[in-house]
Computed example of a mutant assay.
Amino acid sequence: MKGKIALMVEDNEHVLALNRSVLEREGCTVLPAGNLAGARRALAEHPNLDIVVLDILLPDGNGLAFIPELRETTPAPVLMLTSKRDYGDMVKGLTGGADDYMTKPYRVEELLARMVALLHRRDAAREGALLTRGALALDMVAQRAFLHGEDMLLKPREFAALCYLMQHEGEGIPAERLYETVWKLPMGGSAGAVKTTVSRLRKKLEGSGYAITSGWGGGYCFEREQ
């Protein structure tokens, strides 16, 4: 856990203090949050954290319902740690985006072991998970893009759009197809969202040697600059 950053969302001050103490002894930096509002603040300040430990019953909301919002911000693995022992809750957690589920009471040694296992699984998945074109590199697991080694600070949908276009290099991708792939919704009258995202990507790709061009009929093509 040395050098890792963990967000711990837990409203029980005793549990939070105990977990924080154990993790910090292992060299982990802990971002404590007693509610969802605190979790959002921590995510805004530390978007590149490594792992999230999340309770379900929180003063200002439900941890399970927070997972989709969490996934929009970070690809870090999520471990649910809760007093809710119902089998249905566990299923909801694991099918709703959580990577693991622990119930209270528990042993801190098990918590640490599960966190280490999730981090090892993530790191193993990262090996060979780079999509590169010249000085441009996309980390497919962390969902971060780098240009000349510098983080491009792409938003999740910008990353998804760039990734899809790079995977179809040289192919004209209709706006509707790009929208349905990235937003996972029928485009309808939302073509403006695609144009805005592509416009931002074009600016961020300057100096990469690659560009997103527009073809006849409104399609977009990722290709090497001439």
Rank of each mutant, 00 (worst) to 15 (best):
Asp123Ile: 01
Leu23Gly: 00
Ile5Val: 15
Leu43Val: 05
Ser208Tyr: 03
Gly38Trp: 06
Lys84Thr: 01
Ala117Lys: 08
Leu54Cys: 04
Leu36His: 10
Cys28Glu: 13
Leu7Tyr: 05
Tyr164Thr: 02
Ala137Cys: 11
Ile173Tyr: 06
Asp123Gly: 03
Ala175Met: 10
Ala65Phe: 09
Glu109Leu: 07
Leu94Phe: 09
Lys4Pro: 00
His168Val: 00
Val53Lys: 01
Lys92Ser: 15
Tyr106Val: 12
Met102Arg: 13
Pro105Gly: 10
Gly149Trp: 13
Leu7Met: 03
Val52Leu: 05
Glu150Gln: 14
Gly3Asp: 14
Ile51Trp: 01
Pro75Lys: 04
Arg224His: 04
Pro156Met: 00
Arg40Asn: 03
Gly38Ile: 04
Leu118Trp: 03
Gly170Tyr: 07
Leu54Asn: 04
Leu94Gln: 07
Leu43Trp: 04
Ala175Asn: 06
Leu64Pro: 05
Lys203Ile: 01
Leu111Trp: 10
Gly134Met: 03
Ile173His: 09
Pro59Thr: 11
Ala211Met: 10
Val52Ile: 09
Glu45Lys: 12
Leu81Ile: 12
Ala113Cys: 07
Ala6Ser: 06
Glu10Gly: 08
Leu18Glu: 06
Asp151Ser: 04
Arg144Gly: 05
Leu147Ser: 08
Met8Ala: 04
Ala65Pro: 02
Ile51Asp: 00
Ala125Lys: 15
Leu162Arg: 05
Tyr87Asp: 13
Leu94Asp: 07
Asp89Pro: 00
Asn48His: 15
Ala124Glu: 15
Pro77Ile: 01
Gly215Asp: 12
Thr73Asn: 02
Glu225Tyr: 00
Val9Glu: 06
Gly170Glu: 08
Pro105His: 11
Pro174Met: 13
Gly63Asp: 03
His168Trp: 02
Asp89Met: 14
Gly207Met: 07
Val30Gln: 10
Pro32Val: 06
Val141Tyr: 06
Thr95Ala: 09
Met8Phe: 14
Arg40Trp: 05
Gly218Pro: 03
Lys184Thr: 12
Glu206Trp: 02
Phe222Asp: 02
Thr29Arg: 15
Leu136Lys: 01
Leu79Gly: 09
Pro77Met: 02
Leu54Met: 11
Ile67Val: 15
Leu49Ser: 05
Asn48Val: 01
Val53Met: 09
Ile67Glu: 10
Ala135Phe: 00
Glu72Asn: 07
Glu45Asn: 08
Leu18Trp: 00
Glu206Arg: 14
Thr196Gln: 12
Ser214Met: 15
Glu169His: 03
Pro174His: 13
Phe146Leu: 13
Leu154Pro: 07
Gly217Cys: 03
Lys203Gly: 13
Arg133Lys: 08
Leu7Ile: 02
Val141Met: 13
Val52Arg: 01
Ala17Asn: 08
Asp11Ala: 09
Ala175Thr: 11
Gly34Lys: 15
Lys155Ser: 14
Met115Glu: 13
Asp99Leu: 06
Ala65His: 14
Leu165His: 02
Glu158Ala: 14
Val78Leu: 08
Glu206Thr: 10
Lys184Asn: 12
Ala124Asn: 14
Trp216Asp: 08
Ala145Pro: 01
Ile51Thr: 02
